[in-house]
Nucleic acid binder design. Structure first.
Length: 864
RNA sequence: GCGAGCGUGGCGAAACUGGUAGACGCAAGGGACUUAAAAUCCCUCGACCUCGGUCAUGCGGGUUCGACCCCCGCCGCUCGCACCA
């Protein structure tokens, strides 16, 4: 007998195995010309600590990476830092630390924390986006896109915080106020840099159909975000204007001559038009407001209406008649009033609509309020007319009341209306998008400087290639609001590279989403002289499996797709889509605990008890009874955070890795529970006990066929689970397999060795430290990391006999055991002869009408 | 409002293409070992009853020999977008 089992001690074994990997440089990317596999998890922002959500994300990627490696792929699995951004500047303002020091300190801390997780990451490729080496390359391709016309400057409307003197991102505006200053945010027009993402709108939509390993949800979200809609642009000739607009001087834009442009998706309903409505900040509305106080008041009131969901819900349809009339494009004799209305958005289409109250709910609400005509022009098929009371009819049907469109279907009428509009020059078919160009200017310090120089004489001048990177100055101050780059005494004062005159360096920096839009390409050769080494990128891209949170469904994932296409068109890349496979994982959530006075209490300060199913909580430090609250995302404000470090300390890395993957499907949230980790920890001990009790020298000659069969079944199930991203199912199968191996008594023997050898390799992606230790215990000299993934033999995995349930009329009444693949006739005979079946038929006085035999599955008897 | 997803034991969940619902884990109850505890191991664990059954996958219908799975209609929850013309 082998010695009595020893306890597996993660605290000594895990560091030992990690040292072994480090000594062997085991995770440096191996490129041997085999099939490649690029696994990438969304790189972290270095906020200070690795939290449980990071851990789950990276462990998932690690399972994939280790499995692919075992499958014989050359695997690229790098890690870096999305290191520019506001928190560093906020820390600088609040604590007087330099953003650079703060960021690199955090990176150092988090790198060590990540390393403790035993991830198979190639750290030799690490970089941070705030490394001048990285952002300099970004500046280089930014200029290339500038030369290609994809970068431009224009006045854009931004959220401006008047107290902090800075632009705020939409996410930083909370209920109309700056999140830091609390000041009411103003809309301000500012000259900003934009990337022409709208050039790629169609491309980005078409590309979605090629992303068959992306979640449908994310593809749909992107499609909706781009928001392509097809319709027509119409021009309405002006018939009447107020006196103050008439007789504008020749050659100047004039509202009495220029037609009003309107976009519609329903040109088929044009004969039902009863008014035109302009946005409150439409240029004609504003011009009239200069002459009419009532219009000016209206515009002002609209500007103050909130844009939150609740505000919009409550907001009444309001408008004002502008005193202008326009001619109907299909009937010049017919004129319509022009209003300004609060529900028309200046940012969509041309900021003007035609109102067709019969077939648009908003238009109807508006028409009813201001007593405008309602003329229905679409009737449902099979009816002669349609009554419009308080609900517009928006369904399909036939056109009527519409002259030459009468009798056509909605779709036919759209096409015919556009044809007529184009013929008369009053309109044309048009496609418009919700997507707008990407404003990338930030008036902030801690970001990638935009590499241009403004010269009085030459205009915008590129920073010459030999002067890149444009490096951020270190000597900046954060004691006053605003952009430290702009008030730096010398940094922005330069000579024009073109004419040599005094010039001004651009002080805006790039949105940090630019930084994360190409890092995956840089990882393929992070030291290349060019931004992207084409050969390396060609070898490794696209990313085969990308893993991250769904919160980036439109932002990062759309930007990265755009930049990839732009760089590809610039000849720097040869893929159009950066991420061939995408997986969006769920969050790690935890129960919350509050005192009766409402204060949150950390889990480490909570004693839980469970008496016959009734759970209660007490505060450990005070003994006070606590309220068990909702299960929510781990957050500092709720204090329901469990740090990965605590788990490593108490149960070891492997138990923690196992648990975050075992309890829920990867795409769903997983609830962290102390009991759950203990369960995983017990499993680790059980596995070790199997290996520790194994005697490699014992040479039992019996072949345990059942154990071999179970082994092959487990290989099949675990492999399928890992490949299908069903890690929880794979782990459940491993638990069951371990119980099976344990139940097959014996210290040695060939079957047992085969079972344990497979087990060590199957657990390796999940609990790599334990797996190494077990592998060594089997007498193997190499690392399980490099061992081939076990293969299963379908013949060996199949049971000889199958238990077939017998149903009568769909209810289970008995079962028979038959050889696998038995002749259906034989199965039928056996089923009919079954005593339970006979008893049932006799008791109910029924006879068999029909027999359905599903081979090796089930027998159903239809009786009556 | 529009779009998408999800509703299965006390809890997290499983059931792959329609074929034995509840694998695996947690919690709970009982037992073994121990002076005791921890650890470990064994048993029970959807509900109800006459212990052979009956009812059970949000609710109501339908298709099918057979439905957690497909179809129709509701209810509830979550997420995304939102006065998008």
């Amino acid at each position: 007998m082998p010695a009595s089992p020893t306890r597996y001690d993660p605290k000594t074994i895990e560091p030992r195995q990690q040292a072994r990997w480090a000594d062997a440089n085991a995770f440096v990317t191996r490129d041997t010309g085999r099939q490649k596999y690029y696994v990438l998890e969304m790189f972290p922002y270095p906020s200070g600590n690795i939290h449980m959500g990071h851990a789950r994300n990276y462990v998932m990627g690690d399972v994939v990476a280790r499995h692919k490696r075992a499958m014989g792929f050359d695997v690229l699995h790098p890690m870096g830092w999305d290191a520019f951004g506001m928190p560093a500047e906020n820390a600088a303002m609040e604590r007087g630390i330099h953003p650079k020091g703060w960021t690199y300190d955090n990176i150092a801390t988090m790198r060590e924390q990540l390393k403790l997780l035993g991830l198979s990451l190639d750290w030799s490729r690490e970089f941070a986006t705030c490394d001048p080496e990285y952002y300099g390359k970004q500046q280089a391709w930014f200029l290339e896109l500038y030369r290609r016309g994809l970068v431009y400057r224009k006045d854009g409307v931004v959220n401006w915080d008047p107290v902090d003197n800075t632009v705020l991102a939409n996410e930083q505006v909370i209920d109309g106020r700056g999140w830091r200053s609390g000041a009411l945010v103003e809309k301000r027009k500012l000259n900003q840099w934009f990337l022409r993402i709208t050039d790629y709108a169609d491309d980005l939509i078409e590309g979605l159909s090629t992303l068959d390993r992306w979640p449908d949800k994310v593809r749909l979200m992107q499609e909706n975000w781009i928001g392509r809609s097809k319709g027509a642009t119409l021009w309405w000739d002006v018939a009447e204007v107020p006196a103050f607009l008439a007789n504008a001087p020749e050659g100047q834009p004039s509202h009495d001559r220029d037609p009003i442009e309107v976009y519609t998706t329903r040109p088929d309903t044009l004969f039902g038009a009863s008014f035109i409505a302009l946005a409150p900040d439409h240029k004609l509305t504003r011009t009239i407001a200069e002459h009419r106080p009532d219009v000016a008041d209206f515009v002002k009131a609209c500007a103050q209406t909130g844009t939150s969901e609740a505000d919009i819900e409550k907001a009444e349809k309001l408008g004002v008649d502008l005193g202008v009339r326009v001619r109907h494009p299909f009937d010049p004799e017919k004129t319509l009033p022009v209003w300004s209305a609060n529900f028309v958005l200046s940012t969509y289409g041309s900021g003007a609509i035609f109102g067709c109250p019969g077939h648009d709910q908003r238009d109807l609400d508006f028409a009813r309020k201001y007593a405008l005509p309602v003329l229905p022009v679409v009737r449902p098929d099979g009816t002669e007319t349609v009554e419009i009371a308080t609900e517009a009819y928006v369904g399909p049907g036939r056109i009527f009341n519409s002259d030459f469109l009468d009798g056509l279907s909605v779709e036919e009428a759209k096409a015919e209306a556009i044809r007529r509009l184009e013929a008369s020059g009053h309109g044309k078919g048009a496609t418009i998008y919700r997507l707008r160009d990407w404003g990338v200017s930030r008036q902030r310090y801690w970001g990638c400087p935009i590499p241009v120089i403004h010269c009085e004489a030459c205009g915008v001048v590129e920073v010459p290639a030999d002067q890149l990177p444009v490096v951020l100055p270190d000597d900046v101050t954060f004691d006053v609001p605003g952009n430290p780059l702009d008030r730096h005494p010398t940094w922005k004062h330069v000579q024009c590279p073109s004419c040599g005159a005094d010039a001004r360096r651009e002080t805006d920096t790039l949105d940090t989403f630019v930084d994360s839009s190409w890092y995956f390409a840089r990882f393929t050769d992070p030291t290349a002289a060019e931004p992207i080494n084409a050969e390396a990128a060609n070898r490794w891209l696209a990313v085969d499996q990308y893993i991250g949170g769904v919160e980036h469904a439109v932002l990062h994932l759309l930007y990265a797709r755009f930049i990839t296409r732009a760089l590809s068109d610039a000849g720097m890349l040869s893929v159009k889509e950066p991420f061939a496979g995408l997986f969006t994982q769920g969050m790690v959530v935890h129960e919350t605990y509050r005192r009766t006075d409402g204060a949150w209490v950390e889990p480490t300060d909570v004693d839980l008890s469970n008496d016959a199913g009734v759970r209660s909580a007490r505060q450990r430090s005070t003994g006070e009874t606590l309220i068990i609250g909702d299960i929510e995302k781990m957050s500092k404000s709720r204090k329901n955070v469990v740090a990965p470090a605590e788990i490593l300390e108490s149960h070891g890395v492997d138990a923690g890795r196992l648990f975050v993957l075992s309890d829920s499907p990867p795409e769903r949230d997983v609830q962290w529970t102390p009991g759950g980790v203990e369960g995983a920890s017990r499993f680790v001990q059980r596995v070790w006990a199997l290996f520790d009790g194994f005697d490699p020298d014992a040479s039992a000659s019996d072949q345990d066929a059942a154990l071999i069969r179970e082994t092959h079944k487990a290989i099949k199930a675990v492999s399928e689970g890992v490949e299908g991203f069903r890690f929880n199912s794979a782990i459940a199968k491993l638990y069951a397999f371990v119980a099976t191996v344990r139940d097959h008594d014996g210290a040695g023997g060939a079957a047992r060795r085969e079972a344990l050898s497979a087990l060590a390799r199957l657990i390796a992606p999940f609990t790599p430290h334990l797996a190494e230790e077990c592998w060594t215990r089997l007498g193997e000299t190499g690392m399980v990391l490099d061992a081939a993934w076990p293969t299963y033999d379908p013949a060996l995995a199949a049971d000889d006999d199958v238990v077939l349930p017998i149903q009568i009329n769909g209810k289970r009444r008995g079962e028979i055991t038959m050889p696998r693949g038995a002749d259906p006739k034989a199965v039928e005979a056996e089923a009919l002869a079954n005593p339970a079946v006979q008893a049932y038929l006799e008791a109910n006085g029924q006879s068999i009408r029909k027999v359905i035999v599903v081979p090796d599955r089930i027998v159903n008897l239809v009786a009556g």
